[in-house]
């Protein structure tokens, strides 16, 4: 490999010309710089600041924005998670804990609690990618700050029981009900220091989201 194929272009040297020429050129360069800053000063339309809490109504994250892991529940309130634990294994830092159980009626393994620790999550999206049933999603709810780290442990499930596919095969709603058992939004692991959840465990403006568990 010869150097000529690199097409190197060499930096121009900074030259000095003479006492007065340098002063004149220097002053000119300074004035040019001032011209740039003044252009921004005199054009308030160039301001890029966003006034954050005020613009919450219009502030929208991109669809792919990765912040909060969620286990979307369909219109019937059922999720598709089979508790296969692939996400748990895909997680590089052990932020996911899938608690499964033997179904009381079906006798098969089904999801009991889906525990996600946001405090150790790196939002790498590996779980979402790995999920063979596409039942996980990262959403753009970025307002997650809390005063207590223990509030960052979430239980993503609203019920323990089989997947939506299994549940929807059962036609009778009464029979269906027997197959699942609602999970209290607070039914996750116990809080580290007995912290109460502020605002009933709901985060800002996302009532349909599974509420955080009281860990």
């Amino acid at each position: 490999m010869d150097v000529s194929r690199m097409n190197p272009i060499v930096a121009p040297p900074l030259r000095r010309s003479g006492f007065f020429a340098d002063i004149v050129a220097g002053l000119r360069s300074l004035l040019q710089g001032m011209g740039i800053t003044f252009r921004y000063f005199s054009h308030p339309s160039t301001v890029v600041t966003q006034q954050y809490p005020e613009n919450r109504a219009t502030l929208k994250m991109f669809d792919r924005y990765r912040m909060r892991l969620s286990l979307p529940h369909d219109e019937n309130g059922f999720h598709k998670c089979t508790a296969c634990r692939i996400c748990e294994q895909a997680c590089p830092n052990g932020s996911i804990n899938v608690v499964s159980r033997k179904g009381a009626v079906t006798g098969k393994t089904e999801l009991d609690r889906y525990i996600w620790r946001m405090d150790s999550c790196t939002f790498c999206n590996a779980c979402v990618m790995a999920c063979p049933f596409s039942c996980l999603k990262m959403n753009g709810d970025f307002e997650c700050s809390v005063f207590d780290k223990s509030l960052l442990v979430f239980n993503l499930t609203r019920y323990a029981g089989p997947t939506s596919t299994v549940l929807m095969k059962v036609e009778n709603p009464e029979e269906r009900r027997k197959l699942w058992e609602p999970r209290d939004v607070y039914s996750g692991p116990l809080p580290l220091r007995g912290t109460e959840l502020p605002g009933g465990g709901k985060t800002l403006g996302k009532p349909e989201e599974p509420a955080r568990s009281e860990t």
Partner: peptide, 13 residues
Amino acid sequence: KVAAHFQCRLGPM
């Protein structure tokens, strides 16, 4: 304020 507007910001608001 002047600094902010030189820098495309709003400054204290």
